[in-house]
Design a protein around this nucleic acid. Structure first.
Lengths: 248, 248
DNA sequence: TCGCGGCATTGACCCAGATCAAAAGGTCGG
DNA sequence: CCGACCTTTTGATCTGGGTCAATGCCGCGA
């Protein structure tokens, strides 16, 4: 099992620039800094910067394991991270794929409720739990932002329960591709990355690799999508993709 | 489709009693008042009481439908309520069963992300969204409580994803019974209510009624549980029940 | 450049749980 | 008390997707 502890020095000096309403700035990702909090005003941002540590995580490395003491919170600034839970016998359920801007290690737990692993090389901002919580006390706006994020995560989780409990394999794969396309903001025709393996997709959709592969092939064959290579696709017929997803 | 709008007059007069750290008091359920917020101090409670409306809901009636404008938030004070999402063709996934003390209609959405229906006769406290949000502004402790609840709901949702995506029918039913027993705080041997129908259980576990029925019969036959009637059970062999649940 | 190891795809077969069917309780209005 | 209707149980059969087995593909290290 790969295990990463890639630190990142506290970096006390003020970030040299901020763009728009964005908050914590990742030095290496300056081109695309991601806010931990869209609605934070100046002072809160400064304090957040002060407790921020930069972390890098190579693809395939574990950020933390389920059950570990939850000593840190994170925001993802670059790359893709997957969250998952496992059963004692090795069966795995991926509960989500995080993209830049997403928050990780949500508060109010003694220990992490899931494991987190990098799908691609990733950059994160790390906040020591204690200090972050103290900051939360002083800045209700930050708390509000977290509540808002928790709410949308909850809605996404419920949607995923619908998928896992009631959708067919074809519908699951179509839903997955459609939601990637939606997240991508693609109006159709643009190239969308599929950075995770077929195994990851299977463990996210509650299927086997073989079934995922077959359904993706079927989607290609029916002309709903195009795939220039295994890790990129294009939505050719959005209508039919959405229909196949059976979205409520 | 049954549809309930059972109001409940604003009830402006102060609640005559409070027990321990409990908050909003349901007049009819005085024997067991349930807090909306364990950590609220006096002033916040008074303000909460001021915007509270009592609502009653007969078994089988809808509190609200997915997609409706989310004009109200609720806490359940008595009874059991189920939350669910549906697909256009009628397939249904129940995402949770609420018990007294649970919060409902979480903030930061324009419209409800799911439908809510009473499993048994239920009593709720209703808070008009606007006023509740305003109150939230003034009382960070309330916000903190909501965040805490959202976090545990999220953890529960992830556990359910693991169940729906990766567990067998036997494991699902065992997990369900085990979690009811845990929630009940049963040390073993005590009678636990199973107020929902087999259909509801099936739609919660992503199975069919027939499969749920068969697995429950199997659990009885193997001596893991006892059932004095169809809507009550007793855990006879907690060891084996937990083992069958394959809980991570 | 070659060869190895981990993805990905494809095919053949199988089985857990769905579907179909029917009977047995239970509940409620009249 | 009757009868209609619904929930639950039980049995028989079917099938979507899992399992097992190969082969192809690709990236990487030496």
């Amino acid at each position: 099992m790969p295990r990463a502890v890639d630190t990142g020095e506290p970096s006390r000096e003020r970030s040299p620039s901020r763009i728009g309403t964005c908050g914590v700035l990742c030095e290496e990702c300056r081109v695309r800094p991601i806010s931990v909090c869209r609605s934070l005003a100046g002072p809160a941002l400064d304090e957040l910067d002060a407790i921020t540590q930069r972390v890098r995580l190579a693809a395939g490395r574990i950020l933390f394991d389920e059950g570990e003491p939850a000593d840190n919170l994170f925001t993802l600034t670059e790359g893709v991270v997957k969250l998952f839970k496992m059963l004692p016998d090795g069966r795995r359920q991926i509960t989500g794929f995080l993209v830049p801007g997403d928050f990780l290690g949500l508060a109010y737990f003694r220990s992490y409720a899931y494991s987190a692993e990098a799908v691609t090389d990733a950059h994160l901002c790390r906040f020591p739990r204690e200090r972050f919580m103290a900051l939360l006390e002083r800045h209700p706006a930050l708390e509000k932002e977290l509540l808002s994020r928790a709410s949308s995560e909850l809605a996404a989780a419920q949607e995923q329960m619908l998928l896992l409990g009631r959708k067919s394999a074809r519908e699951r794969v179509a839903s997955f591709l459609a939601s990637l396309a939606r997240r991508h903001g693609s109006t159709g025709g643009s190239l969308i990355a599929l950075p995770m393996s077929r195994y990851d997709i299977a463990d996210y959709l509650g299927l086997t690799v073989e079934t995922v592969s077959r359904e993706i092939q079927a989607a290609k064959a029916s002309g709903v999508i195009e795939m220039p290579d295994r890790h990129h696709f294009r939505v050719v017929d959005r209508q039919r993709l959405e229909a196949a997803a059976a979205s409520g």
